[in-house]
Design a protein around this nucleic acid. Sequence first.
DNA 1: GTTCTCCCCATACCTTGGTATCTGGACAAC
DNA 2: GTTGTCCAGATACCAAGGTATGGGGAGAAC
Lengths: 221, 221
Amino acid sequence: MSNAGQTITPSRSQRPKGEASAAPVVMVVDDDIDVRDSLRDLFDSVGIETELFASTGEFLDAGIPNRPCCLVLDLRMPGASGLDLQARLKELEKRVPVIFLTGYADVSTSVRAMKAGAVDFLPKPFRDQELLDAVGEALRIDVERRSGETAVSEVRKLADQLTPREVDVLRGVGRGLLNKQIAFELGITEITVKMHRSSAGRKLRVVSVADMVRKIELLKL
Amino acid sequence: MSNAGQTITPSRSQRPKGEASAAPVVMVVDDDIDVRDSLRDLFDSVGIETELFASTGEFLDAGIPNRPCCLVLDLRMPGASGLDLQARLKELEKRVPVIFLTGYADVSTSVRAMKAGAVDFLPKPFRDQELLDAVGEALRIDVERRSGETAVSEVRKLADQLTPREVDVLRGVGRGLLNKQIAFELGITEITVKMHRSSAGRKLRVVSVADMVRKIELLKL
DNA sequence: GTTCTCCCCATACCTTGGTATCTGGACAAC
DNA sequence: GTTGTCCAGATACCAAGGTATGGGGAGAAC
């Protein structure tokens, strides 16, 4: 399933699932080069790829890779702090699991970070294994989120081919109405409803009634 | 599931929805009577009911009320600590939102509490409003959880009237199979499948195909 | 024994769903 | 103008779902 030799085929956007199960990467944001280097060594030692950034700005410029990843973040940095970055990511709706590291920890900051959804919050000094455990958990969370999201986004991509009328009909189906009831509500004949329904089913690649109901749920129609 | 007032009104188990939207209550567990009293006064002042307990044991004996509630918990107490109680509740699968109060806070403890699912963690001294906000959030969470749970448990209650064969058939329906395919898989005729299917539908009070699919999903069949 | 539940099968009938193949109007893009 | 898309409709046919009303056998409970 690896994309190692894929340079020939431009299949990047054609197989998001392959991406989701690609090798994970840990992104480290810390202004201290010694910390960055030692973290890189730590993750190297267990065979986990890393990307290093000296500031939150540098990280945001690089963007978030399209594969399982998590963020190891120093709390206090010159300029934008770790908490700022966490908030910024939430604004941008980038849901990357975050692990905080900090030398100057206080309780209210740690609670704030955790309430904002951090996976872990490690005051220095910490044992290597603690961080590795946290990263393992964070990557697990990210893999799960990604698999869920690709499933949804694939259906959504199919769904935006739907015409307004097809959406109306699907909504009726989702509510458990019979074709004739949908027809009555929309002021059209049952035959036309069937037409839209089958057309919508084709577009959504529906293979059964159960499948159609599930996809309608997924799309929150 | 206490039987406290059962002698007078036997309506307890008959209206779970009513219970879920009943007046909320904050349960306070703290060994210091002064703290208990002042918290009671605080919640009284905003019209929120309280129940006070001097130890985790006392709280566990009383059981968890069948209405929206949350737990305000002192971290350090003689005997079982707040974290112990939190862990114990998880064991018992009692999902009550927990808010920690503590005078002797350290970061790793707060992170542990938050990772275990605490809603908030307030080091003393804190402002009254902080606690009230946290309680408001906790109660909101509990109300939501309860409404979701009653929906599931109602379907589940209907579902345990199903015979094994009916479950087999429903599983097939959930997988989007046609009646004849289900019949083939089970080694029976299509007519019998229809019989089980309609029987199961009656038992689950299904009103449409979409409804049946949703309930099958809900039951994770 | 009787009674009950669960499981299985069958015939018959009707409703609903799904598809194919037609027609036609409104409207926008070129 | 032509082309294309969306919407709406019709007729016909077949597959699938649903129900009603029969029947019978196995096993547990009484």
